[in-house]
Each structure stands twice: as structure tokens, then as C-alpha cells.
Design a protein around this nucleic acid. Sequence first.
DNA 1: TAGTGGTCTAGACCACCGA
DNA 2: CGGTGGTCTAGACCACTAG
Lengths: 238, 238
Amino acid sequence: MKSNKFLAIYNELCKQIKSGELKPHEKIPSENVLSEQYETSRETIRKALNLLSQNGFIQKVKGKGSIVLDVRKFSFPVSGLVSFKELSKTMGQPSQTIVHEFGLVRPDSFIKKQLNISSKDEIWRVIRARQIEGEKIILDKDFLLKKHVPLLTKEICEDSIFQYLENDLNLKISFAKKEIVVENCTEEDQQYLDLEDFQHIVVVKNYVYLDDTSLFQYTESRHRLDKFRFVDFARRGH
Amino acid sequence: MKSNKFLAIYNELCKQIKSGELKPHEKIPSENVLSEQYETSRETIRKALNLLSQNGFIQKVKGKGSIVLDVRKFSFPVSGLVSFKELSKTMGQPSQTIVHEFGLVRPDSFIKKQLNISSKDEIWRVIRARQIEGEKIILDKDFLLKKHVPLLTKEICEDSIFQYLENDLNLKISFAKKEIVVENCTEEDQQYLDLEDFQHIVVVKNYVYLDDTSLFQYTESRHRLDKFRFVDFARRGH
DNA sequence: TAGTGGTCTAGACCACCGA
DNA sequence: CGGTGGTCTAGACCACTAG
């Protein structure tokens, strides 16, 4: 781990809020007090508090102080970048992944357009069904550029592609564009999912970028209508 | 407007990126150069650049510099807090608002739960259909606490409640929790919208908070399946 | 008026990158 | 090696809120 002072302070305050040591609607100590407590400058404290504010833990009010928000109301932060494995872990539900298709292929015209590549590039194509509480309700279709991911195995796909990329390949994922739309079910959806009578499906399209700003992965996460939920915490103004 | 130096710099760079003066994949001047150009300190420049980074305009790379991202790929930022009027303006599509129900009521049990209030509080209840290119595809149901909004008129609802709150009442909206789910269509949906044969509807639930952290508005925005689209730009790590 | 958070400064040291 | 962005400091002034 790095030794970021402001991150350490953020984590400590974060923990205190989650544990209830700092209660909702109460004020946290002022920036001046905190800078003495932590023996650091005020700007460093402010960095930590701004992080807390961005992530919905506190609300800063000019002239008054910083108030703790009711985190329970904002729980389940599906917003941002999270992998299915991280998600199912925090939700505490038993889940299972079934790899249906896996291989190295040439891109078809659709993928060429999505990833903005030529026919010469090879890509990993993975199709997985996600089962939660006995029902197959999510179909994940991943397309990764071989250029950035030389090796991929079925075993990795059964665990977490995401963890493999970050931990083993040490690829730094920096940002993603996410798009949510509703589409008609395909035969593929019907084949791999427990769709009941639903005729539509919620599709989350993810365009994932690396640290050097290169687009390297396109993912479609297809959710059964009744099981889909997306939560976002948004701040107004800056 | 206020005279925030870092905001002014942010806006100027933002404009240069949007206009193409600073092109995608090119580097912007270094922080040291910019601090000389703008005759300011480096920390102030960094504030501006961090804002650009958060909003998806640039990517900062340690040891190298800041690279301009392809903004066109991330256009249409429905993410965050935007009103229908702001949205239709940026999309450049002709739109129309029809106020179906409007009045001051006592909260039913559902709204009491959503807004976390008692039976004594009065609320404004507004139901509006949004028509785009001749089709009624969005049903907005707004519930506002009278405690914070003493007066509301049908005319305001036909224009923009949001603008009225911010500009005239000078209420400061600071953050919101947004939740997206899919529900079965109600009779109300069928009555007020051009639903065709869709049996489900995308519901965006908004819990809106003021500067002093008080919850004062609950909004349901019900979108016809085929017309719904949500785009998000997410960064990983901090 | 005293205390709060918001902004800004000038300088410092570090890790990282490229030549 | 020099240049880059990342972090941290100690101090300053401001606008706002409260008593």
C-alpha cells in the first residue's frame, strides 16, 4: 500500500461513519480540529473530506461544518466500475458463473465498430451466464483485445476476468463509459437465461479504457427485466 | 457569477476541448506551463485539471502529462442531475409538457415512506406527460414538500419546476440518489402515455436533497422501454 | 465577533517517465 | 538527467453562519 496521508484519513473517517461511531445528522470535527488531531495541514484534511463528500458520506456546509449523511439510504453503490464478483460479494447472495462460449476470434463488423479496430486484431470472446439463487438472470458478453490480454483461460472466466486483469496482468483500468438501454430478447438470451415470458431485456454496455486512454474491452451485460437495479449518487454543481 | 479562478480555467479549457482547439489524443500544456500562462499557482491549475478529469475531458498520466479524451464518444451526459428541460434543450428535439394532475395533498402511505414524513406535512403532487416528436413517452410524477416550496402553479409545471426552485426560490439542490428499475405498466401509464404494446416501463426514482441535507422531493420518471437511454462516465479508483 | 468551510499562494519533496 | 504529475505544508484572505 502507498502512504497517502489524505487517503488514510479518508479511510479512517469512512470507517467511523460506517460503524456508526459518527452518526448521521451529526457534525464531524471542523477542519482545523482535524488538522491538529492528525497533525497535518488543513489542505490535506480538505482532500480527505472532499473524497467523503464525493462518495456521499458527508455534506459540507459553508460557515457551519460537515454533516454525516445517512449512508444506509445510499448503500448498494452499483454506480461506477464494479465487477460481478465484487457485486455479489457485497450483496451476500450465493451466485454461480457458467461459461458458455470461450475463444479467440476475428472481430465481426459489430465488434469492430464497438472497439474501433481492424480485422487484423484478434479478440477474446467470452459469453457467461450468471446464476443467482438458482435463476440464470444475467448474460455477460465480453470482448477483449488480445493485444492487451495475451492469455486467457476458461478457469479465469469462471472466477473473475476483472480480478485477473488488475491483479495478475497488472492492467490499470482507469475509466469506462456505461450505457443502459432496453432491447428485444435474442435467441441467445432465451438459450442461456431463465427468461420466463419477458420479451425485453435490459442491456448495460460498457466501454472500458486503460490508463493510457486506449479502449481495450467491450462488455454487454444483459439483465432480466425484473432483476435489474441501478443506483447512482449524484452531486449538483462543483 | 462568482470569480473562481480555477472554475474560469476549467471552463476555458473545457471550451477549447469541445471546440477542437485541443484535439483528442494530444497533450495539453503541463501544469507548470499553465500556471505561468494563467499567472496562478500550480495547485489552482491542478484543481481545474482534476475537474476536467472527473468529467471525462482529460486523462492525467504520471510522469507524462495530461491527454485530451475524445469527448464525442462520451456525449449526452444524462448522468448526474439534469432536468427534462435542460435535457431536451441539449438534444435539440422539439418537446412538450402536458400537466395532467396538479395540487396540494396529504401524503399517502407510499409517499410518506419515500419522503420519510408524517401525515401532517402537505405536499405538492404533480403528474406530467412529456411528448417528444409527437409521442408521449415519459410520465413524470413529482412530490415536493410544501414546507420548502410554499407556492407552485400549473404554469411553472408546464415550464420547469427545477428552474423555478433554483432561480426563483433560490433553493440549493446539492445531491440526489437515483434508482433505475423496470416495473409493470400501471393504468395511469396507459392513460397518459402512448405505450403501444409494451407491458413494462423503465422507472427512474429520484430522491432529491437540499444543501442542509434535508430530503425535500421525490420524483418518478417513467420512460417507455424503447425510448430509454442512460449514459454514465465512471472512473476507477481515486 | 469568532468559527466555519472555500479559495489561493509559493514552495517543497517524491515517484515516474523519456531521452 | 530534466520534466511530469502526486502529495504535503504553512500561511493568507474571503464569505458565510452563529451567538
